[in-house]
Design a protein around this nucleic acid. Sequence first.
DNA 1: ATGAAAGCGCTAACAC
DNA 2: GTGTTAGCGCTTTCAT
Lengths: 348, 348
Amino acid sequence: MSTDSKARRPDTRATMRDVAALAGVGIKTVSRVINDEPNVSPATIAKVRDAAERLDYHPDLNAGNLRRTGRRTRTIGLVVGSVANPFSGAVHRGVEDTAVERGVAVFASSLDDDAAREQRIVGEMLRRRVDALILTTVRKNQSRLVAEQERGTALVFVDREPAGIDADVVVTNNAEAAAEATAHLIQVGHRRLAYLGDRRELWTAQERRRGFLDQLGAVGIPTSGVPVIEDLHTEDAAYAAVLELLDGPHPPTGLFTSQNLVTIGALRALRDRGLHRRIALVGFDDVPLGDMLEPGVTVVAQNPYDMGRVAARRAFARMDGDTGEPVRVVVPSVLIPRGSGEIPPEPA
Amino acid sequence: MSTDSKARRPDTRATMRDVAALAGVGIKTVSRVINDEPNVSPATIAKVRDAAERLDYHPDLNAGNLRRTGRRTRTIGLVVGSVANPFSGAVHRGVEDTAVERGVAVFASSLDDDAAREQRIVGEMLRRRVDALILTTVRKNQSRLVAEQERGTALVFVDREPAGIDADVVVTNNAEAAAEATAHLIQVGHRRLAYLGDRRELWTAQERRRGFLDQLGAVGIPTSGVPVIEDLHTEDAAYAAVLELLDGPHPPTGLFTSQNLVTIGALRALRDRGLHRRIALVGFDDVPLGDMLEPGVTVVAQNPYDMGRVAARRAFARMDGDTGEPVRVVVPSVLIPRGSGEIPPEPA
DNA sequence: ATGAAAGCGCTAACAC
DNA sequence: GTGTTAGCGCTTTCAT
C-alpha cells in the first residue's frame, strides 16, 4: 500500500468542446445531439456521436444543470433512521424504484435518530441542491426547512409527522393500529398488559402509546397501574426493561412493543426466562422471519415499501408543479396473528 | 390534489454575489469566508457571515466544484444488490459511516443483479461525476470501467471480484468458508449432502460451490452423486428446489445453502415437511434472527459492515493519492454453530 | 487583506 | 440546421 502524496489525475476527460472540434461542428450542435434536441441533420448526428464515442465522452450533469432551465439536478435526498434497518431499507427501495424510472439519483443517509446529525446531513444535501428531500426526522419541529421549501425544494415527510411546516406527509395509522393490537390482546383475555415504547420525543412513539392507552380506557381497564416503559431505543434496552418487568412483583400477561428493535429485545428476554410460550406479545412493525419463530410473532405490520413509493410520488408531483394543499397519506398497517399474540393469560 | 402544470419556483436563492453586495465586499472575499480561507480580517468575516445569515445563503457545491482544483464532488456512488437486503444494508452503512466523517455524500442504488440496470445506474453516477464508485457488480467483466478509472475515479469492488480490470477488491473468503461449513457437516457425520446455490454467473456463487465440492473431495466423498442445484435467485426458487430434493428418492441428510435468501427458502421447505429438526443445514451469510429460530440456524456469517468500511477506506485512500498496486482485502466469514448444522444424520 | 477578470462545462437566447 | 454570444455560481489567478 504505497502512498504517493500528490498523485493528481491527468484529468484527460473529454469536454463538449473537444467533441465539437473532432466532429468539426459547433459546441451547441453537440449539445443538441447529446440532449436529443431536434433540428440536427442525421449526418451531423452521426458525426457527433462518432466523435463522442471515440473520445469516450460523458456529459457533466452538474455543469449542465448550472444553466439549465428550472435548475433541476435530477437528484433527491432520502434521510432515514438507518440504512441498515429493514424498515428503512424497504422505504429506500420504494423511493429508489420510483426515482430510477425517471433517471433521478438518490442520496441516502442515516440519522440514528440523532438531531445534530440530522442538521448536518440535511445541510449537505441542500448544498448539493437536491430537487427533493424525503425525510424521517428526529426533531418534531421542522420550521427551519420552510425557507428551503419556498425556494422550490420538494419536501415529503415519511413515517413521522413534523410540526412548524406545511408539507406532504406519508405515515401509517399509528394510533389506530396500536389500538387494534391492544384490542387483540384484550380479546384473547388479557387484562394485565404492559407497553414498551421508543423515545418519547418521536411522534410515532407518542401515537402508538396513545392508541394503546385509549384502547385500554375504551374497555374500562384502569391505566393507572399499567406499566408504560418508554425511551427504549435499542434491542438491549428493551431486553433489560422486559427482564425487569418479568422479574417484578406483578408481571404482565401480555406485552405490546411499539417498534421492531424493541420487539426483538422483548422476544429475547421472554426466551431467556422461558416465558415465550406463556406471555403474549404483539409488536408494532414487522420483524424479519417473524413467521418462522415459535411461536410466530404477532405484529401490526407496516408497509414501508409502499410508504417509500408514495412519498417519492408525492415528491415528483411537487417537482412537476403540483401546488395544491399539502397531502397527508395514510398507508395502513395490518394485524398479522402468528401465535405470540394469541397466547391466553395464565389462569390465576 | 390540484395539479398546476407550469408552477415555476421563483428561484429566489441568494448567491454569493448577493451576499457580497449586502456585505459591501467583493465576491472573492465572501468565497474566502465561506471556505474558511485565511487572510480575511475578523471584522470582514463578521460582516460576511451576517449577510449570509440574513439572506439564508447556502453555497452551491456543484457550481463551486466546477472550477475547484481536483474537481472533486465530495460524492461517491454505491451500487449493491438491493438496498432492501440486509447484507447490502450493512455494507451501505459501513460505507456511509466512513463517508459521513469526511462530509462526503453517498448515492446508493440497487441492481437486482440485472446487468442492464447495472450499466444504466453506473452511467447515471458517472454523469454526476462521483469521486469514487463502490460496486457489487453483476457482470464479471468490468473492462468498460478502465477508462473511467484512468480518468481518476476511484473504483472499489466489494463482495464480488471482477475481471478485465485492476482495482481494489474487498471480499470474504468464500471458498474457504464454504469448505469450513462443509467440513462442519461432515464432521457431524453427514455423507449425503446437497448444495443449493445462487446464479452460476456470480463469482461468489462459483467460489462457494468450489469450496463445497473441494471439501467433499478432500475427505474422499465422491461428488458425482451429490445434488448441486444452482441458479436459485429467490426465496421461492430455493423453497421449490428443496421440496423437490426432500420428496425425491434419495434425500440428503444435510444441506449447504450458499446465500441468505436461499437459506430462508430452504428453512421454509424443511419446516413445511416437518424436517427442520432432522435434516442439517448450514447457510452462507447470516440470516436475521437466525439465533432465535428452533433450531438456531448455523451459518458462516459474513461481515458486511466491515466490508463496507474497508471498501470506503480504500476508495478514500485512492482519492487521497494512493497510487500503489491494487489491493485485495479479505474480510473473513466465521462459522456460527447454532443448532441446525449440528443435527446428526438419521441412522439408516 | 481585498478584489477584478477569466474561466470551469455546459445551456439559453438569438442570430444566421 | 447551425453557430455565436452570454452567463449559470463559483474558484482561480493575479493584481493591488
